[in-house]
Design a binder for these strands. Structure first.
Length: 462
RNA sequence: GGCCACGUGGCGGAGUGGUUACGCAGCGGACUGCAAAUCCGUGUACGCCAGUUCGAUUCUGGCCGUGGCCUCCA
């Protein structure tokens, strides 16, 4: 099976040819830890988790290395810590903990490595000194800057020719820049701001610029070149462009990563998500109302490169779908592995540039197939295994139902008593009272189901 | 201003040079005391205008519309 992915570098759907199939390497830009992650942050986390799972299936779990960094040095962090009157370390630790909990709830596997920027300052200094030595960077007023014109083919990823960018530049050019396009690799730290020993003989302590951390961490954990680099579409310029400049010029390589993947933006109820307009929602807030799996299925219902419109309606669709699928699988164990033909069929759809909507469509079909096979649980086990490849249907129906029932306002005993009363009413043909109880519970989001064997069970309405 | 995406049926959302995507909702039916769930059946589509073609929703050009990047941002 060939994995084809849309490569931003070539603007075409390219087959993945790992540099080393025994060590397939992927780097994804992770969060800056200063606040709760919002649902837009969840998109790359979920999308690249699906890719990670697919790569593990194609190349073997032990042959895939997935690195997602934690940025714990940044001016936003400094400002937030000061606002809250806590230390930077407290803020980043707390935020990182939240992030881990959120991503786990979304059903994402932990990456192979989650490196922190502050633990890679030495690598950053090494890179910076190499760039200066090679004539790609210079020291000015205690800053170290990357000299963009020193790299003739700068701009390949974003396809912005240099002269156009200079013409379009409308930012005030800092006096220490030789060229308007030059960007900061290292800058001095004032008192009260975290600082480390500076490179290049600069006496004042300093801190890294925005882009150098990813070059440093990908180098340390994946090498000078690797297979896949991912992130949000907004990172193409300048972040990824500058990462490429740093890494390629430091190592004298033709590429940094072979494949560059970018997920599209997220809108909220048709509006641009904007903190200043107040329309943004954190993962944590959504998790109070919906199981993480509902968020995950909702996110995967739209192809990763398309803009996604995040709506309550979409969440409702996903919840309803999962209700159905869990009913189909019951409490069976998943069948996973190369021998499961259903899983293979899903893998094929995912191999076509992570076509998750098509894969989900096929899961609907597989659910129908599995449901009709009353005699054997084998197909249900295969269906579950296929869904598991996307990180879906990872628990049992019992666990899923129990989770949904947690959110109900009434306690089990009260519901049970009302069900018993209704059964008695039905027995004595008092259908008026029976319907009254049904409506009473329905008003509280509870749906009653009269089973064939004479019992009555209940579920949470969607 | 420069660069780049996208525009599919009531809604969500894939895909394709000629053949049913799929899901939800709707409608009809079966089942049910009534329901829920399930099952069977069923309608609606490719922004606009040209061009290429035997044939375009799918390719090309133009137009209109929406959104993104160019400054921190997934």
């Amino acid at each position: 099976m060939e994995l084809r992915l849309h490569n931003t570098l070539t603007r075409s759907r390219d087959a993945l040819r790992p540099l080393d199939p025994l060590n397939v390497r992927m780097y994804v830009c992770g969060p800056t830890v200063y606040d709760h992650a919002h649902i837009g942050n969840a998109r790359p986390v979920i999308v690249f988790d699906v890719l990670f799972r697919l790569l593990r299936r194609l190349y073997g779990a032990e042959h895939v290395k997935y690195v997602r960094n934690i940025t714990d040095v940044d001016d936003k962090i400094n400002a937030r810590a000061a606002d809250r009157g806590i230390s930077i370390r407290e803020l980043t630790e707390e935020t990182y903990r939240w992030f881990r909990e959120d991503t786990a709830a979304l059903g994402c596997l932990p990456p192979t490595v989650e490196p922190r920027a502050t633990e890679h300052i030495a690598e950053m200094r090494t890179l910076i000194e190499r760039l200066v030595a090679a004539g790609h960077a210079y020291v000015e007023q205690e800053h170290v800057l990357f000299n963009v014109p020193s790299m003739p083919d700068y701009g390949q990823l974003s396809r912005r020719p240099l002269d156009e960018m200079i013409a379009g530049a409308r930012v005030d050019v800092a006096p220490y820049k030789r060229d308007p396009m030059d960007f900061v690799l290292w800058k001095p730290s004032d008192m009260g701001v975290p600082g480390w020993d500076s490179p290049c003989g600069i006496k004042t302590p300093g801190r890294p610029g925005w882009h150098i951390e990813c070059s440093a961490m990908s180098w340390r954990h994946l090498g000078e070149t690797f297979d896949i680099h991912g992130g949000g579409i907004d990172l193409i310029f300048p972040h990824h462009e500058n990462e490429i400049a740093q890494s390629r010029c430091a190592f004298h390589t033709g590429v940094m990563a072979q494949m560059w993947l970018h997920n599209g933006f997220l809108m909220l109820e048709g509006e641009k998500m904007s903190k200043s307009l107040g329309n943004f929602v954190t993962i944590r807030e959504l998790l109070e109302e919906w199981p993480g799996e509902v968020l995950r299925l909702t996110m995967l219902s739209t192809h990763y490169r398309q803009p996604i419109n995040w709506t309550r309606q979409g969440l409702g669709f996903a919840a309803k779908t999962l209700d159905k699928w869990y009913r189909v699988i019951g409490d069976v164990e998943a069948e996973s592995g190369a021998d499961n033909p259903f899983e293979h069929e899903i893998a094929e759809r995912l191999s076509d540039d992570l076509n998750t909507p098509s894969a989900i469509s096929h899961l609907h079909h597989l659910a129908d197939v599995a449901e009709h096979e009353e005699a054997s649980s084998a197909l249900r086990r295969r269906f579950k295994g296929a869904a598991n490849l996307m990180g879906l249907l990872t628990e049992t129906e019992s666990a899923w139902r129990a989770r949904a029932k947690e959110s109900v306002a009434l306690d089990e005993a009260t519901i049970g008593a009302l069900i018993a009363e209704r059964l008695a009413a039905r027995k004595s043909k008092d259908f008026k009272r029976a319907d009254q109880i049904r409506e009473e519970l329905a008003a509280k989001g509870i749906v009653l189901m009269d089973n064939k064997d004479g019992t009555t069970s209940w579920e949470v309405a969607r």
